[in-house]
Design a protein around this nucleic acid. Structure first.
Lengths: 217, 217
DNA sequence: AACTTATTTTAGATTAGACTAAAAATATAC
DNA sequence: GTATATTTTTAGTCTAATCTAAAATAAGTT
């Protein structure tokens, strides 16, 4: 099995690779892991020795098949635990990330099989992210970033990008949650800000907010 | 907070101190932790620096108030998770120990508060051991080892000492579980073996088995 | 093309936790 | 009460994961 640190690096590289499509820069990894570039290099080289990533000095890092499998397994565990925490223990969706970061490293195939069944095989976690299946397949959701939508388009919120407590609380305060219908009433070219309709109410939102909301059209 | 290793040592020392009443030998700790005496000494000295144990060279180790608090908190978490695994995820009672060993180190007060509530504030774990409350109080069960009972005495099984898979499966095979009524029909002085009644059936059991069953008379 | 800046890697040190081998303290035996 | 055996501790080494400082490479600018 792999260490906690290894699993965390693999998960991190997986997410970065998804975002930017292509080899991941050492600095990007270091930054996301809140560590120094030298530490990241060190770990990357160890992961390369174990053939979990392929790596060429100064050129960047990509996950191997095995590396992807490990990363996705960890993500599956993380998201299943998040469902458990919200659905069964009644946590708010913005409180679960930190705890799931720990739970995702518990080693037991059987545990996850049973947890998945107990939760009735959920497809999405409380933030709207898809839960990989046992074999590592992830449902691709054809979601759009709200900031890329134009006037009078509408859809439902299926996920968020940023997962900080502040951001999720911002949404809660405005009654915006996964599943909420959102319509774009207006868009300002100058700064990318928008006026949106949520249920009976209308809000002004900045570009920064709009960039962090995923909408299914 | 404390590291996994520290928590495990504290838990180990707690159990040994309960059993033998008095300062715990370094070798006993090393043996229970499946490590070498030198490693144990090393850790004990670090724990002493942090005032979690009081320790005098060559004399043995005892937990301080703070050390007890940490150990009991870990034991509480372990036993609550065991209840969860058996009651909610339908594990057999002999399959849960290893997983609970991992789960007991998850750091979150709130998680345990909510888990406890979700499980309806259980008093005992699936092996019959009492679950410490939030403040660290442990219900003392006035239980007796079966091997110390005499002919025609009876009671119910409230706990087991040994927790190996083989032993628990031995019990399962004979339909013996926590809560089962047991009556001593006969006892052999020579080797301490017994004939017991369980439900409608009678079994011969060796002294070794009898020493590992706790009965509430 | 040469200079400057930013990124990445190497070298060397540190910490927790474990190990082996040897030394020190305690316990047991005659 | 000395000799022997057992237990415990110390000293020194090892690995994973981190750090700082310095060196190497790549990228950007004139």
């Amino acid at each position: 099995m792999y260490t906690r640190a290894e699993e965390n690096y693999l998960k991190c590289i997986f997410h970065l690779e998804q975002e930017h499509k292509g080899a991941v820069a050492t600095n990007a990894i270091a930054q996301m892991m809140s560590t120094k570039a030298s530490s990241a290099t060190d770990m990357i080289q160890r992961l390369a020795d174990k053939e979990l990533v392929s790596y060429r000095r100064y050129k960047g890092t990509t996950l191997t098949k095995e590396g992807i499998a490990v990363a996705v397994a960890v993500i599956r565990k993380h998201r299943l635990w998040e469902v458990f925490l919200v659905e069964k223990l009644n946590f708010q969706w913005d409180e679960v990330h930190e705890i799931a970061e720990q739970l995702e490293h518990i080693q037991s195939e059987e545990l996850i099989t049973r947890l998945d069944k107990f939760l009735d095989h959920p497809d999405y976690d409380p933030h709207g992210d898809p839960i990989p299946d046992k074999d590592g397949n992830i449902k691709k959701t054809e979601k759009k970033v709200l900031s890329e939508m134009s006037k009078s388009q509408h859809g439902i919120l299926v996920g968020v990008r940023e997962t900080s407590g502040e951001f999720l609380q911002y949404l809660d305060k405005r009654n915006i949650a996964i599943g909420t219908k959102i319509k774009v009433l207006g868009k300002e070219f100058f700064d990318g800000s928008m006026i949106i309709q949520v249920k009976k109410e209308q809000f002004f939102i900045s570009k920064k907010i709009a960039e962090n909301l995923y909408i299914q059209v």
